[in-house]
Structure formats: structure tokens, C-alpha cells
């Protein structure tokens, strides 16, 4: 199928939307506190686990009821609260004290790596210790089994979470835009990013701005993870170790200094990861008649895009400030 089906395009868009949300979150905390947060992908997994627990405890019994689909409204919100709290805890216990001590960029990155290791291992522990009949089962099972495909006009049958992901990303993008341009707190966030010194002189509580940015970053990661849960073949905390590269790729393609750039970059990287391997192997099959499986290399594509943008096309997506990224 060199011409992709609509369903395939939609599922690729869902993957892109998830990554857009995640790249946006990682960019937000980079812009406010200059921290490259390696624990971001683990937060998404925590969002996924939250959703699975919710599914298992409260929604499994509703499977035949239309109420079942309220899952897609409830679970991202609940996951957002959980991961937002985790991000705030991370900032308050780890990042803020180190920034106050004058720890450098690399020191802070190490700190987020360390926090990620702690968080990821605690999550593993939690999943393994929870009685096997609940979460243990979810670890193995294909989570899609929990979902019933719904019939959608023009598209045919598809899994509803794939529709919710792009909608959610769009809503979060618009919401964030309104927050940053229409509310005083949002504008003060932009002011603190641009010139924290002046913001302090003026009397903006820059500290609170940073705290809120970490909460928002964690919350959006949880939302993305919540819907991504259905896309994963099973929940494994270790999956975060690779996924973080894609998230950074989206963020860097978007310029690392622009929220909107990150949304676009994340969407580009995420959907490319889904489309390009399939497209290449389809073309290859058409030409040679042999089948090659490129999907397992899909994360390579985001890596290549990241390297390409960093080294070869430093201007990145059009019109983004790239000053101060490259040396010399």
C-alpha cells in the first residue's frame, strides 16, 4: 500500500500529537529554568500507568456502556494531576535547590538523569509489587484489548484514542496560547523567560512562575501518556529510555526556545517516525518484491532528524532563533 489508508494516517497523526505534547512540555521547562529534563518520558509512562489503573479499577465494568468513553475525558485529567505533582516534587526537591547552589547546565542534566533513574526504578517496583491480577496483567496484555474500535464515517472502524490525541494536542496548544497571551500570569511567565532579572526588579514572583511551568510540563506529559497507553504494546518503564530521544528530537527540531515550534517539531517527528519506515519498506517491496521490516528502527528516524537539524541545518524550522545554540 504505497498510498496509505486514512486510518494509517490518522494513527500516525495520533503518534505525532502525543510527541507534540511531550516536546512542548520539555521545551517549557527548558525555557523557564534552562533544564533539559531527561525524566520527561518517564512522566508520560506514569500517566499511562495511571490510566491503566483507572481502566482496570473503574472502567472495565462499563465496557458495553456509552459511559465507557468518558474514560478519554477523565483519564487524561487525572493523569495530568498525578504527573504534574511529580514534576513539582522533582522541581522543588531536586532542581530548585541545585539552581540556587549555582549548579551548571551539565550538573542539572545529570540531576534530571538521576531523578529519572530513581523515578523509573520506583515505577518498576510499584508495577511489580502491585498484585499480579491487576497491573501485572496489564504489563503483558495488549492494552488495545481494552478498547472497542468505533465506527467513524468515512474512516471506518478505528480506535477512539487515536482521534482524541490530536484533539487533545490541539486543545492544549490553543489553551496554552490563550494562557500565555491573555492572562496576566501567562504574560508574566513570558516576561520571566525573557528577562528574569528585570522580572524580579519589577516584582514578578519568578519563583512561582517556574513552579507553575514545571507543573504544566508534567501535566501535559501525563495527558499524552494517558492516551498513549493504548498505543503501547504493553507498559514498560524502560520504554522511556528510548522515547526521551524522540521527545528531545521534536523539541530541538522546533528550536528548543519556542513553545509553538516544539508543538510543530514534535508533531513532525512523531508522525514521521510512524510514516517514513512504513513508506520506505512499501516502496522497497514494490521495487524488489522483498519485505523488510523498518518499523523496529523507527526511533532512528527521529535521531537522524535531530542530528540533521543540529549539525546540518541549524536554522531549523523557519524563523526560529538559533543564536546561542551552536558554538563559535
Amino acid at each position: 500500500m504505497v498510498l496509505p489508508s486514512l486510518e494509517f494516517l490518522l494513527s500516525s497523526a495520533a503518534a505525532g500529537a502525543a510527541l507534540a505534547l511531550l516536546s512542548m512540555g520539555i521545551t517549557l521547562t527548558y525555557m523557564t529554568t534552562r533544564v533539559s529534563n531527561f525524566a520527561h518520558a518517564t512522566m508520560a509512562i506514569i500517566g499511562a500507568v495511571t490510566t491503566l489503573l483507572l481502566l482496570d479499577r473503574f472502567f472495565a465494568g462499563l465496557r458495553d456502556s456509552p459511559l465507557y468513553y468518558t474514560l478519554f475525558l477523565v483519564s487524561p485529567l487525572l493523569a495530568a494531576v498525578v504527573t504534574g505533582a511529580v514534576a513539582v516534587i522533582m522541581y522543588v526537591t531536586t532542581i530548585r535547590p541545585l539552581i540556587k547552589k549555582g549548579t551548571g547546565l551539565i550538573g542539572l542534566m545529570i540531576a534530571t538523569l538521576a531523578f529519572d533513574i530513581i523515578l523509573n526504578n520506583l515505577l518498576t517496583l510499584f508495577l511489580q509489587l502491585t498484585p499480579a491480577q491487576t497491573v501485572g496483567r496489564l504489563l503483558e496484555a495488549n492494552v488495545k484489548g481494552y478498547l472497542v474500535p468505533v465506527s467513524i464515517p468515512l474512516v471506518g472502524y478505528m480506535y477512539p484514542h487515536r482521534l482524541f490525541l490530536p484533539i487533545l494536542a490541539l486543545l492544549v496548544g490553543i489553551g496554552l496560547h490563550l494562557f500565555l497571551t491573555r492572562t496576566q500570569f501567562g504574560i508574566s511567565m513570558r516576561a520571566s523567560i525573557e528577562n528574569p532579572q528585570l522580572a524580579r526588579i519589577i516584582g514578578i514572583n519568578v519563583e512561582r512562575v517556574y513552579l507553575v511551568s514545571w507543573f504544566l510540563s508534567g501535566a501535559t506529559a501525563g495527558m499524552a501518556g494517558s492516551l498513549l497507553a493504548f498505543e503501547m504494546p504493553g507498559i514498560s518503564p524502560a520504554a522511556a529510555y528510548l522515547y526521551i530521544v524522540s521527545i528531545f528530537a521534536g523539541s530541538i527540531v522546533g528550536g528548543l526556545n519556542s513553545i509553538y515550534g516544539a508543538l510543530a517539531g514534535g508533531f513532525l517527528v512523531g508522525s514521521m517516525e510512524a510514516i517514513v519506515p512504513v513508506f520506505i519498506s512499501d516502496v522497497y517491496q514494490l521495487v524488489t518484491g522483498e519485505y523488510i521490516d523498518l518499523l523496529r528502527y523507527q526511533r532512528m528516524f527521529s535521531f537522524l532528524l535531530l542530528i540533521l537539524v543540529l549539525l546540518v541545518a541549524p536554522e531549523g524550522l523557519a524563523g526560529i532563533k538559533w543564536r546561542g545554540i551552536r558554538r563559535g
Binding site: 533539559s36 551539565i106 530541538i252 526511533r299 535531530l306 558554538r327
Partner: peptide, 20 residues
């Protein structure tokens, strides 16, 4: 990468290279 990128970008690039 080490010659061209600043520290945090460099760290991300090297990590990504290794993982990939």
C-alpha cells in the same frame, strides 16, 4: 558534534547517538 554544539545540546546529541 563536540566541536560544534554547546554543552546541553551536545549532551543530548551524544546521548541520542549512543542510544540509537
Amino acid at each position: 558534534a563536540a566541536v560544534r554544539l554547546k554543552e546541553d545540546y551536545l549532551a543530548i546529541a551524544l546521548l541520542a547517538f549512543s542510544e540509537m
